[in-house]
Amino acid sequence: MRLTDNDFQLFGLPEQQAQVRADIDARWKSLQAEVHPNRFSAEGASAQRVAMQWAMRVNEAHQRLRDPLKRAAYLCELRGAPVQAENNTQMPTAFLMQQMEWREALDDADGEAALTTLDDDAARAETTVLDTVQRLLDEANDAPAAASQVRALMFIQRFRADIDQRLAALDA
C-alpha cells in the first residue's frame, strides 16, 4: 500500500464505476481509523506528519470515490480519456436542447414548488445519464464516450447548484 496508489487500489475496490456507497464509506472509516493523526498524537512529530499525509490522501480518495460524477471523471482519466471540462465542451447533441429548456424553466420558476419540481426533473435526468456512464465504462469500455456524458453530468450538477441557490435565497 503506497501513497501513490490510485484511489481504487487504496480502498481495495474494483476499478469500475459501479460501486456500493456503504462499502466506500466503510473502507474510508477503517482506513482513517488506522491513519488519522489523532491516533499518533502521543507520538513524535514525524509520525504526526506521515499520519497527516495519509489521512489527507485517504480523504481525497474518499471524496472522489463517493461522488459518482467525480468517480466517473477519474476513471475516464485513468483510461486515457480525461474530461478536460475547461477546453472541451463536446456533449451529446440531444442534451443541448434539454439545457436550453431547463434554463428557461429556471428563469420562469417562482416559488419553492416550481423550483423543487425542476430539481426533481434534473435529478431524474442525472440518474439516467449516470446509468449511461456506468454502462459505457463498465460494459462498453468506451472511455471517450463516457467522458462526453460526464461533461453533460457536470452541466446538470451546476444547474442543480443554481436551483439550490435559488432555494437558499427563499429561506434567507
Partner: peptide
C-alpha cells in the same frame, strides 16, 4: 529530540504502510 524525529521518519512511514495494509 529533533534528531530522533528525523532518524525515525522512514520507520514511521513504514509502520503507517503496515497499518494501512492491516486495515485493508
Amino acid at each position: 529530540v529533533k534528531a530522533l524525529a528525523e532518524a525515525t521518519e522512514g520507520f514511521a512511514a513504514e509502520r503507517m504502510n503496515r497499518s494501512i495494509a492491516r486495515a485493508l
